[in-house]
Simulated scan of single mutants.
Amino acid sequence: MKPQVSLAELPLRPELVGEEPYGAPQLDVPVRLNVNENPYPPSPAIIADMADAVAAAAAQIDRYPDREALGLRADLAGYLGHGLSAANLWAANGSNEVMTHLLGAFAGPGRTVLTFAPTYSMYPEYARNTHSEYVVVPRRDDFTVAADDALAAIAEHQPSVVIITTPNNPTGTTTPLAEIEKILAGTEAIVVVDEAYQEFARHPEQTALTLLPRFGNLVVSRTMSKAFALAGGRVGYLAAAPAIVDACRIVRLPYHLSAQTQALARVALAHATEMLAKVDELRATRDELLLRLPQLGVEVIDSDANFCLFGRFADRHDVWQRLLDRGVLVRETGPAGYLRVSVGTPAEMAQFYQALTDVIEEIR
Score class of each variant (00 low, 15 high):
Ala48Leu: 13
Ala48Gln: 15
Met50Phe: 05
Ala51Val: 14
Ala51Trp: 11
Val54Tyr: 06
Val54Asp: 04
Ala56Thr: 11
Ala56Phe: 13
Ala57Lys: 04
Ala57Asp: 08
Ala58Lys: 15
Ala59Cys: 07
Gln60Gly: 14
Gln60Val: 10
Gln60Ser: 14
Ile61Pro: 03
Ile61Leu: 13
Asp62Val: 13
Tyr64Met: 15
Tyr64Thr: 13
Pro65Phe: 10
Pro65Glu: 10
Pro65Leu: 09
Asp66Trp: 07
Arg67Ala: 14
Arg67Ser: 14
Glu68Phe: 11
Glu68Val: 06
Ala69Tyr: 01
Gly71Cys: 12
Leu72Pro: 02
Leu76Val: 05
Ala77Gln: 03
Gly78Thr: 05
Gly78Val: 02
Tyr79Asp: 08
Gly81Phe: 06
His82Phe: 14
His82Lys: 04
His82Ile: 05
Gly83Val: 10
Leu84Gln: 00
Ser85His: 04
Ser85Ile: 03
Ala86Cys: 04
Ala87Gly: 11
Asn88Asp: 13
Asn88Gly: 03
Trp90Leu: 02
Ala92Gly: 15
Gly94Ile: 02
Glu97Ile: 05
Glu97Cys: 02
Glu97Asn: 08
Val98Gly: 03
Met99Thr: 06
Leu102Tyr: 03
Leu102Ala: 09
Leu103Phe: 15
Gly104Ala: 11
Phe106Trp: 12
Ala107Phe: 07
Ala107His: 06
Gly108Lys: 08
Gly110Ala: 10
Arg111Ala: 12
Arg111Met: 10
Thr112Ser: 07
Val113Tyr: 08
Thr115Arg: 00
Phe116Trp: 02
Ala117Asn: 04
Pro118His: 02
Pro118Phe: 05
Tyr120His: 09
Tyr120Arg: 00
Tyr120Asn: 00
Ser121Gln: 10
Ser121Arg: 11
Ser121Lys: 12
Tyr123Ser: 01
Tyr123Asp: 00
Tyr123Ala: 00
Glu125Tyr: 15
Tyr126Cys: 00
Tyr126Ala: 01
Tyr126Pro: 01
Asn129Thr: 12
His131Cys: 11
Ser132Lys: 04
Glu133Leu: 11
Glu133Arg: 14
Glu133Trp: 05
Tyr134Phe: 15
Val136Ala: 11
Val136Ile: 06
Val137Arg: 03
Val137Asp: 01
Val137Leu: 02
Pro138Gly: 06
Pro138Asp: 11
Asp142Thr: 01
Thr144Gln: 07
Ala147Asp: 01
Asp148Met: 03
Asp149Ala: 09
Asp149Glu: 11
Asp149Gln: 11
Ala152Pro: 10
Ala153Gly: 04
Ala153Leu: 06
Ile154Leu: 09
Ile154Phe: 07
Ile154Val: 15
Ala155Asn: 14
Ala155Arg: 15
Ala155Glu: 15
Glu156Ser: 10
His157Ala: 04
Gln158Met: 13
Gln158Thr: 15
Ser160Tyr: 12
Val161Cys: 10
Val161Ile: 12
Ile163Lys: 05
Ile164Asn: 01
Thr165Tyr: 10
Thr165Gln: 12
Thr165Asp: 12
Asn168Ser: 08
Asn169Gln: 10
Pro170Gly: 03
Gly172Gln: 05
Gly172Trp: 02
Gly172Cys: 07
Gly172Tyr: 02
Thr173Met: 06
Thr173Ala: 03
Thr174Ser: 09
Leu177Cys: 09
Leu177Gly: 10
Ala178Pro: 05
Ile180Leu: 13
Ile180Tyr: 02
Ala185Lys: 06
Gly186Gln: 01
Gly186Met: 05
Thr187Gln: 11
Glu188Ser: 15
Glu188Ala: 15
Ile190Phe: 06
Ile190Leu: 15
Val191Arg: 01
Val191Cys: 10
Val192Asn: 08
Val193Asn: 06
Asp194Trp: 13
Asp194Glu: 14
Asp194His: 14
